[in-house]
Write a protein that binds this DNA or RNA. Structure first.
Lengths: 198, 198
DNA sequence: GTCTATATTGAGATAGAC
DNA sequence: GTCTATCTCAATATAGAC
């Protein structure tokens, strides 16, 4: 953990992640990564085989974190609606903890799908999708959720709204991840239309 | 319109848009664009100054189309809820008509913001945002929409869900843009929770 | 208008000194 | 472990023939 070599690796990955998120993997040069870390570009190759290896490591670390967090979230959920809220909250916490990885994942996943070197990323990503669909389909079967909208369509709408929120949500004191999770859950479950006083 | 030179330009832009959407602007090479059109890469420079010029033209054409369509949509809307539905429907129709431009816009806008050569794209994009916010704020003021969720937050959630749907929605006979617009409007206004029989 | 050929730059990656 | 220097290749863009 306090291994200095590992610390350097992490530092490089942190700088690379920020640049990959902002400009895209392809548009980021290894020289820029070196500048951000404060070393020459050649030195990066002592720690990593290639630029793509850095990207793979950032994404796999992110996906592993998602799977961990979802497992914890689902373990403590009572019903389908609560499980949905837990998935939303867990995802928002992850976007806050790993904002750059979130952005890279969102922006480049479709493209990376075409690249066989990123096959493991695809597989992990399919499992994440499964977690959402299980919750949504369970809720639909129980009658908690509407039956007239396809679970797949609903899943994609929530997923995009949740993950993309990392692009614009930068936690302030008065609008934290918990508050945003409440708002998103509330809108997706009960809608934005004003409701007659109950 | 039937000017053959202009037709060639359009053909090049269509191929470029598809590649830009799939791989990103930076990751797409002019050779690939040439291959897709069926000409040598050098020949592209008879029609365009640079690869970036192609990207700018694709995006500006897209933004002009949005502004046109939103103006028409809003002109025929009755109340705020209807206006919201019209904006959603208009956007979905645009994603269907210009799927590649939609994807490029979504994936690369944040990055292009940093590039002064794309300043006009930013300005047009700010106007589009204004159209959404006007409708949402009007609805909130009228009491049609909830007052406990920020218009800006709601705007971003709808916007991301709507535009991103172009990534996964490929109109089939039984699930057309109108149907998807209804589902999205319905979920965002009334929620996904099953409602007691009314 | 498109081709072939090529100038030129920029980027990923490597080698060897320190 | 990092630096300097550089190799190598790929990509944008240009020039001139047809």
């Amino acid at each position: 953990m306090t291994d200095p070599a590992a610390a350097r690796r992490d530092e490089i990955l942190a700088s690379a992640a920020e640049l990959f998120a902002r400009k895209g993997i392809k548009a980021t040069t290894v020289r820029e990564i070196g500048d951000a870390v404060g070393v020459q570009s050649g030195s990066l190759y002592y720690h990593f085989d290639s630029k793509d290896t850095m990207a793979r490591e950032i994404l796999m670390d992110f996906l592993a974190a998602i799977q961990d967090r979802y497992a914890m979230a689902l373990a403590q959920a009572s019903d389908a609606a609560d499980a949905l809220r837990q998935l939303i909250l867990a995802s928002l916490q992850l976007t806050r903890e790993k904002p750059h990885a979130t952005t890279i994942y969102q922006n480049e996943l479709a493209y990376l799908r075409e690249d066989p070197r990123f096959k493991e990323v695809q597989a992990a990503s399919a499992e994440v999708r499964r977690a959402w669909l299980d919750v949504i389909e369970r809720g639909a079967a129980e009658g908690t959720f509407r039956a007239d909208v396809s679970p797949k369509v609903f899943h994609r709408l929530v997923r995009d709204a949740v993950w993309l929120s990392g692009r614009w949500h930068h936690a302030e004191d008065d609008y934290c991840a918990e508050r945003l999770a409440d708002d998103i859950t509330s809108i997706f479950l009960h809608g934005f239309a004003a409701r007659p006083a109950s």
